[in-house]
Design a protein around this nucleic acid. Structure first.
Lengths: 350, 350
DNA sequence: TTGTACGCGTTATCAT
DNA sequence: ATGATAACGCGTACAA
């Protein structure tokens, strides 16, 4: 073994840390200072009740003295228990999924878990490669948005042996656990609400993402069931935006007679539709009713005339966290598919 | 050593995974199947160019066959290089910081790094405990919002030996790297803009968070420099909301004569102020001008009359990622404090 | 180009 | 209640 004090040869890139060993204090360092065995330090951290109060105090002093920070890479390796939960979501830039991830993280961090974030994007999803990257960290559980995954993803997820929560929608074939609500049912609810208001001539502005199309399908199915067969459909790109909603509403007005009500598969589209309606001198809902989905926080204030579908985004994350923690604590619950429901938030001036 | 086939004693909580060993395939498994040494498999993954194409092919086949997923806990422990970047932000529920984190994650994941998410909250910050939790994972770098940290946090961060990026604002005493802009300067810019429009009687609605107060101070300083000493100040709780803006604007109108212009330290406050103004029969900006900060994407469409301060939230995350990657690659850059700037986005109908 | 030997920092297991 | 020892799965240094 070479003399440790031998100066290393010059390098192109002087590393901030030595190639070997972080230089940080280790369990062994603490143990030496405290005059105990390393395992005792480990216990002082993980199962303090198993130590005599005096030994515990001794170790804690030593920990402070050397500024010890546990190395969870090592701990995770030894225990095959990373205390990491991976969350793979399409995006956190819009508040859609961000609030759920925040609630997830809040609850998990109380329990000593951290969230590993993976952003898969909307279009052709990077979920598969992300899954690989994330699985390399050996997370203790997984939180995913949606229930559509590639065949290989499904295979790896089921073979992973860890709890997997699919969120945001429901499914007949859950991988493991599910926390969401029925998008078809929200579409139906929108249709029922508008029919109840007496409207009969409809248009729908639908973003071209899968869950939005489920809402559209539910809407159309309910209308068809009530004898309303003709609905003007205006598709638009995903994710739905205010700009897209404006353009879509403009297209609707120019395509023929004004419908009595327009259902938009997501709130930003509805905001855009209302804005365009205003600009064309129309009053919502007197001249045309607009209904949205998602209940974005500020919309209630900015657009008091907008009726929308409300569901609790934070609650999805919070329940997912509870479900995950329960599984990790060995309390396998019977209800593997949890429907958090939704409600019609009527805001049109009565 | 007991016979491995010995049935384990009954447990209260049958673990999903065996206590020891994940059961997953390891480097050694792949090596055995491929008929090479473990280190060769390691090289096939990390430095494929160092292998003969035929050996590489052999190993890759074996990897597929056994479904090998590298264990980065082990890899990180061995190399003291976790390929993890921790991001500690007050919140991701509003798009404020979420977009920056998303951009950070996007860029980092291209380079093989993952983001470990820590949410510290707004009030009395949990940054310190989060820091501990996060440092236990041995991240290769840190991304933080803001430049105010507790003394112990500063100490630990500087002792950590890893690149630290403080984002969102600038500072005289950077811990390491900084990516942000001057909040005082944005306040000054707002004042200059409104003075340039000819306004002389102002009110300001300021949220009680530190950076918002810097913007307020800049605003007031610029006005004072131009001889405008009296400004009606309406404080409000942090973070600023539409609701808070409405209430604040109401308080302003009831406190005395209407100001010519109102500066709000963040857009939601401005939205609220405009909404309240409308409800009182006032036209913006004819009767009272309103100026905001942040340029939330949709506000341009919903509130075409609102002039605001624009800065690129995604860019903060993107540049932070670049800076971090550069440091990790040993390219220590000279400019440790990066000002990404901002601009006045005038949207008042001319 | 490939392999051998060892250590990374911690926890599980079994003993005392 | 505490300790000794052996993994955990991989990367690094050096040898071949």
């Amino acid at each position: 073994m070479p003399d440790p004090s031998t100066p290393s040869p010059p390098r192109a890139v002087p590393p901030r840390r030595p190639a070997r060993g972080g230089g940080a204090a280790t369990l062994a360092d603490v143990a030496r200072v405290a005059g105990v065995a390393p395992v005792t330090v480990s216990r002082a951290i993980n199962t303090p009740d198993a130590l005599l109060p005096e030994t515990l105090a001794l170790v804690r002093q030593a920990i402070d003295k050397v500024g010890y920070v546990p190395n969870l890479l090592a701990g995770g390796l030894a225990s095959s228990h990373s205390r990491l939960v991976a969350a793979i979501v399409p995006s956190i830039g819009t508040s859609m999924f961000a609030e759920a991830v925040e609630a997830l993280s809040d609850r998990l961090s109380e329990a000593g878990y951290e969230v590993l974030l993976g952003i898969s994007g909307f279009g052709q999803s990077r979920e598969d490669e992300l899954l690989n990257a994330v699985l390399s960290r050996r997370p203790d559980a997984l939180f995913l948005i949606g229930t559509e995954h590639s065949a290989s993803a499904r295979r790896r997820l089921q073979g992973s042996g860890i709890p997997v929560v699919e969120a945001w929608e429901l499914t007949e074939k859950p991988l493991d656990l599910v926390v969401g609500f029925s998008h078809t049912a929200t579409g139906r609810a929108a249709a029922k609400y508008l029919l109840g208001k007496g409207y009969r001539r409809f248009a729908i502005i639908a973003a071209s993402d899968r869950r939005a199309m489920l809402r559209r399908d539910g809407f159309l199915a309910e209308l068809a069931g009530q004898g309303v067969g003709e609905v003007f459909q205006q598709p638009t790109a995903a994710p739905g935006t205010v700009r897209g909603g404006r353009a879509a509403f403009a297209a609707i007005t120019e395509a023929g007679p004004l419908p009595e009500a327009v259902f938009c598969t997501v709130d930003p589209l509805a905001h855009g539709a209302m804005l365009e309606a205003q600009q064309r001198g129309l009053v919502v809902p007197r001249d045309v009713a607009v209904m949205g989905f998602g209940d974005f926080a500020d919309s209630a204030w900015l657009q008091p005339a907008l009726t929308t579908i409300h569901f609790d985004r934070r609650r999805i994350g919070g329940i997912a966290a509870e479900v995950i923690l329960a599984e990790l604590n060995g309390k396998r619950r019977a209800d593997r598919v949890i429907d958090i429901g939704f409600e019609v938030a009527a805001r049109e001036s009565a």
